[in-house]
Simulated scan of single mutants.
Amino acid sequence: MANKWGIPVDVEIFVKDRDKNCVYCRVEFLESYDSRKSKPSWEHIVNDVRVNGKDNIALCCISCNASKGAKLIEDWLQSEYCKRKKITIDNVATVVKEAIVNPPEIKNN
């Protein structure tokens, strides 16, 4: 079973429990989404919709998701957006660091 984005339900539950802040800029997600900045959105760290494991699915704020788009994570971290927001490999969430070091792949069942 998967959600409307193709993310398996068990992964969705795990990620929602793990990611209470944007995995990139670390802004806290709030219960009431008064601004786009505090609203979580689904993120594929490695931009491949077929890679839907908990090592590639994360929650990030809408601003970071819109900025990253389809860019490779390594390229995006060098962008003006990341420089302005002081987002670096050193201060992103552990799941992002691990995805950079050991990129998630499609798992054959």
Rank of each mutant, 00 (worst) to 15 (best):
M1K: 09
N3G: 05
G6H: 07
I7T: 12
V9I: 15
V9R: 13
V11T: 14
E12I: 00
I13V: 15
F14G: 00
V15L: 01
V15E: 01
K16E: 10
D17L: 13
R18T: 04
R18A: 08
N21D: 07
N21S: 07
C22R: 09
C25Y: 05
C25L: 05
R26A: 11
R26P: 00
E28C: 05
E28Q: 15
L30Q: 13
Y33H: 15
D34M: 02
D34S: 09
P40A: 06
S41G: 11
W42D: 06
E43I: 02
H44T: 03
H44D: 04
N47W: 06
D48V: 10
D48K: 14
V49F: 08
V49M: 09
V49E: 15
R50G: 13
K54M: 06
I57L: 03
I57G: 01
L59D: 00
L59H: 13
L59V: 01
C61E: 04
I62Q: 14
I62M: 09
C64H: 07
N65V: 04
A66R: 04
A66V: 06
S67M: 03
K68T: 11
G69N: 04
A70H: 08
A70P: 00
K71E: 14
L72S: 12
I73A: 11
D75C: 00
D75W: 00
Y81K: 07
C82N: 09
C82W: 12
K83S: 13
K83D: 11
K83E: 13
K85L: 13
T88G: 05
T88S: 15
N91S: 08
V92P: 08
A93W: 07
T94Y: 06
V95R: 10
K97T: 03
E98V: 01
A99Y: 05
I100M: 15
V101W: 03
N102E: 14
N102I: 01
P104R: 10
P104L: 07
E105I: 14
N109I: 11
